[in-house]
Nucleic acid binder design. Sequence first.
RNA 1: GAGGCAUUGGUGUAGCGGCAGCACAACGCUCUGUGGCAGCGUUUGCACCGGUUCGAAUCCGGUAUGCCUCCCCA
Length: 432
Amino acid sequence: MSKSKLQNLHSPKGMHDILPQDQPWWDKIRQEIDYIADYYNFHRIDTVLMERAEIFEKSLGETSDIVEKEMFVLKSTSGDRFVLRPEGTAGIVRAYVQHGLSHLGQPLKLFYLGPMFRKEQPQAGRFRQFHQAGFEIMGGDSDAVYDAQVILAIFRLLENLKIKDISLHINSIGCRICRPNYRKKLIAYYRPLAAKLCRDCRNRLKQNPLRLLDCKNEDCQKFKSEAPIILDNLCVSCSRHLKHVLEFLEELDLSYVLDNQLVRGLDYYNKTVFEFFTNTVSEDGRKFDFALASGGRYDYLMELFGARTNAGVGGAVGLERLIEVMKAAKVNLSLRKKPGVFFIHIGELAKKRSLKLIESLRDEGVPVKESLGKDSLGAQLRSANKEGSDYTLIFGQKEAFEESIIIRDLKNGVQETVPLRKLVSEVKKRLK
RNA sequence: GAGGCAUUGGUGUAGCGGCAGCACAACGCUCUGUGGCAGCGUUUGCACCGGUUCGAAUCCGGUAUGCCUCCCCA
């Protein structure tokens, strides 16, 4: 880093610029998301980056980790509290209700792509500013077919991005009728064991008992395996819903793992929850232990915001994580290089006329690169080569007088002099 | 919020108490009539603040950031 008057010249912790050399990855991902969205009729929505704090506090749950310690809160001088959005769904439900989007048809399928902000310790696949793309189906009935559609769309996206060894974990966390019962059973089971549990689990027992099922501590595993299973405790409606979702997935030949220990950190979920993982291993043996995508049904969130119908389901993918896995798997981006020509001038007269000449090509839709600031022929040819151009146009003193130009094929060195008036057609012919 | 390891030009690295070096990249020249090669040259650095010392990139403390882990998560 060169000397600067700024003391600490750095983007904030966990927030990274996306540099030109990484843009092809992002282009690829955006391209596939647009394709999937169009394919399944999801309409793009962009909501604001900042919401009133209560939008998240009320929806994600006051005791959720995100709300308790991960939100970037901004206070205005008038005392309003705003939050940089830590996730996408709450804002979209807000917009859905605010703008009466239920009038656009039921259910409404929406997708989004944009930055999210969480004040966490940066770590593998985790950043303070990161990007998510999500698919939401809201309104209409709380029909299992929509759960399956969201899962399918995300699965196809991962597949199209050539991510290998995808596994889908799915579970149901019940509703406000059956979940409290299960919770009681779980607490009843764990309370006598409290002394033997790890410290985190003792906390979970008080704060969020369902999360006991998440514990990775070895000593806690044996208790977990004996613990009551939520799937055995679902009410009729929830268990039928789950059965239907699974049936749809089976019809699609989409394999899944029924993971009765999958619980999610956000309060607004009910019934279906799911996560996508990959078993991709990078060349240096690194595994990807984080979820690539996740989601679930959020009927209560719709209710909380006062939507007409209490039905919503959606999922989101973490784009930085996708890119990491794609890089590790050496996914070939196969981005087509735009064909184009490189313009070279020799001599004062030719240089003077070059801008206008290039403009006439660009007007005709021919992409032109140049390094007009360099005057030496060698230097310009080197630039042309570095840019990977297929053809070079050489416009010198002689050509300027004769109203002609040289078209040179950079690969084989074959070149031809053509009259200027034929330039556009000759170039187009070669670029085809 | 807690812990471990790290930080030397744009990138990758050597130096580990005594002259900051190398490779690649970038830029220029050889090169105003034909490039990729080559030769020559130029630019750019010890993260920051303080301490120890005759002397610090090197040892110590703090801060920042990065990587990794816990918590949690996309």
